[in-house]
């Protein structure tokens, strides 16, 4: 199904964006990891969010999510693994599925682009970021899953169910991937395993991996005052655009990005009708 706006990330920035897209009468889909995997979920107390003091991160997230649901935002659990502009639409790969929208808002939190040794070199030659996308190419073979979320453990289960022999590395600090033409082995925190494939399942893709050509500044996504990036139809909000990494700032960013993306979608719809 086609949406006016698709939001990547379901934290305060993404939810605020979704509420504000709906306030402008546009349709919106929020794609995110499960709410309990948001880093804010673990905060015992947030005391500087105006008007709602003394709430836990979990309470704040649940309140915001309910607000966005009530506003009419659609939700989908999943990790965005690719994005491609084509014919005035953004096509977004979510696991092995796909959605499209006129405008995108990146609100996926802080995801650093730092890679493990061998990761970039063996991408597509044994290194993958999506088990449900590429798992079928590894049926009956030995693979490693380097997982940083509970969702990653479910993806490892999927790989086992299709006949892969899976070695699971839970949140290792350091890994190195080695091989010749293709991946042959991986070492994580001193443990080496011979494998044909490595699935690196981080909470979110680094912005520049998801959007080649995206302008960054000081390690964060560069935006203007409308929260527009240098890529047409792509907006960004929240921690991925820089500090302070606080809920109030994220919600404010989300409001601006939501309004800007809704305006972009309205303009696209208007052009579509007149041409």
């Amino acid at each position: 199904m086609s949406y006016d706006v698709l939001v990547i990330g379901g934290g305060p920035a993404g939810l605020s964006a979704a509420v504000n897209v709906r306030a402008r009468g546009r349709s919106v889909l929020v794609v995110s990891n499960p709410l309990e995997e948001n880093p804010l979920w673990k905060s015992e107390r947030v005391d500087n969010y105006l008007g709602l003091p003394e709430l836990s991160g979990r309470e704040l997230l649940e309140t915001m999510r309910r607000h966005a649901e009530k506003a009419g935002a659609a939700f989908r659990d999943g990790r965005v693994v690719s994005a491609l502009p084509s014919g005035g639409q953004w096509y977004v790969g979510i696991g092995s599925d796909m959605e499209h929208a006129s405008a995108l808002i990146l609100a996926a939190g802080v995801a650093r682009g730092k890679k493990f040794p061998g990761e970039a070199e063996f991408l597509g030659r044994g290194v993958s970021y999506c088990a449900t996308c590429d798992g079928m190419l590894y049926r009956g073979r030995s693979v490693a899953v380097v997982g940083y979320t509970p969702t990653a453990e479910r993806e490892a289960e999927f790989l086992r169910s299709i006949g892969c022999t899976v070695t699971y590395f839970r949140q290792p600090k350091r890994c190195e991937i080695r091989g010749g033409q293709q991946v042959e082995e991986i070492t994580c925190d001193g443990v080496t395993q011979a494998v044909d494939g490595v699935f690196l399942l981080r909470p979110a893709m680094a912005p520049t991996d998801l959007f080649p050509g995206l302008e960054m500044e000081g390690g964060y996504v560069k935006t203007d005052r409308r929260m527009a990036t240098n890529l047409p139809g792509l907006f960004a909000a929240g921690d991925c655009t820089g500090g302070p990494l606080q809920v109030s700032k994220a919600a404010g960013d989300g409001l601006v990005a939501g309004q800007s993306a809704a305006a972009w979608a309205s303009e696209a719809a208007r052009k579509g009708r007149t041409t």
Partner: peptide
């Protein structure tokens, strides 16, 4: 072709691989 992730796009010049792009990318 040792394809281990899709989409993979392989370029052949006179029958020999000269380039390979992995993942969905702009035209």
């Amino acid at each position: 072709f040792g394809v281990m992730q899709i989409p993979t796009v392989v370029f052949l010049k006179d029958g020999k691989e000269v380039a390979r792009k992995v993942g969905a990318m702009p035209a």
